[in-house]
Design a protein around this nucleic acid. Sequence first.
DNA 1: GCTTGACTTAAAGTTAACTTTAAGTTTTAG
DNA 2: CTAAAACTTAAAGTTAACTTTAAGTCAAGC
Lengths: 147, 147
Amino acid sequence: MYTIGQVSEMFQIPASTLRYYDREGLFLEMERTGGIRRFGEREVEALRVIECLKASGLEIRDIKQFMAWCVEGPSTYGLRRQLFETRKKAVEEELRQLHKTLDMLNFKCWYYDTAIADGSEDRLNAMLPDKLPPEIQKLYDNCHGKE
Amino acid sequence: MYTIGQVSEMFQIPASTLRYYDREGLFLEMERTGGIRRFGEREVEALRVIECLKASGLEIRDIKQFMAWCVEGPSTYGLRRQLFETRKKAVEEELRQLHKTLDMLNFKCWYYDTAIADGSEDRLNAMLPDKLPPEIQKLYDNCHGKE
DNA sequence: GCTTGACTTAAAGTTAACTTTAAGTTTTAG
DNA sequence: CTAAAACTTAAAGTTAACTTTAAGTCAAGC
């Protein structure tokens, strides 16, 4: 069993944030001794799931809903499974979006490398949007709306 | 040249947001006719870059800084190049984090598939954290801190 | 027993990124 | 010329996720 300070240290999360999560109902069955929170394995695993769901784009209120399902028992397995499935779809979409963002960033890096080499953007502007090197054309098209 | 309403439609961004961006200094040289904003190719490309930088995790105030560099001219090519390089690093890190998140989500989907098939988590709890199927073990380890 | 450090609470404050409101101006269609 | 649609502003309001503050309680070491 851990104190809030130890968990704060383990996860590199401020104790104030852990208290906030508790207030919001993310640690529904946490024990206390003399008013002081005791984090057990259940809470540590809950925190890993909280970080995962947060990273997937879920809001605190919806994570609270999930935690309530966990307390409710086996009748909510289906709902919980569905939640993770939906989060998977969201993260996969986010990954696709981030790859497009990366293409734009790579294009811009090439663009400024070229501008620096040339000393101006004149030649670049004359090349745009066609006449780009083939590998750069791909990056450009992918972040300027071409399918 | 486009009005704010046309750009709002094109990018599916509320006109109020475009005005907010303008107020924050993201369209530094935008023209007006009779007080009304005229978005040209420069502003449309700026908006594409804004969306990219936002998706990369950059804040509005830092995007404003970038736009100021663009107005400043060729002397800031190096700074602009460096900004995109830094954003690339941030996005690549975000991609790594999202892949770990996806591993956790896949593990949880398998976990609840199994719990549903079993009707309880008893057998699962007896399997954890070792004795998991090999392909599941990988997912589990990757999101429970094992290197 | 006393100090120190870690814990507790409720309530107020912070921040970023919008969003809404209210009042007014400009453009467009008839 | 007029009515409606689309634009304008400054200022206030919203939201999520914390974070800080103030005042107090608990546990450990000397």
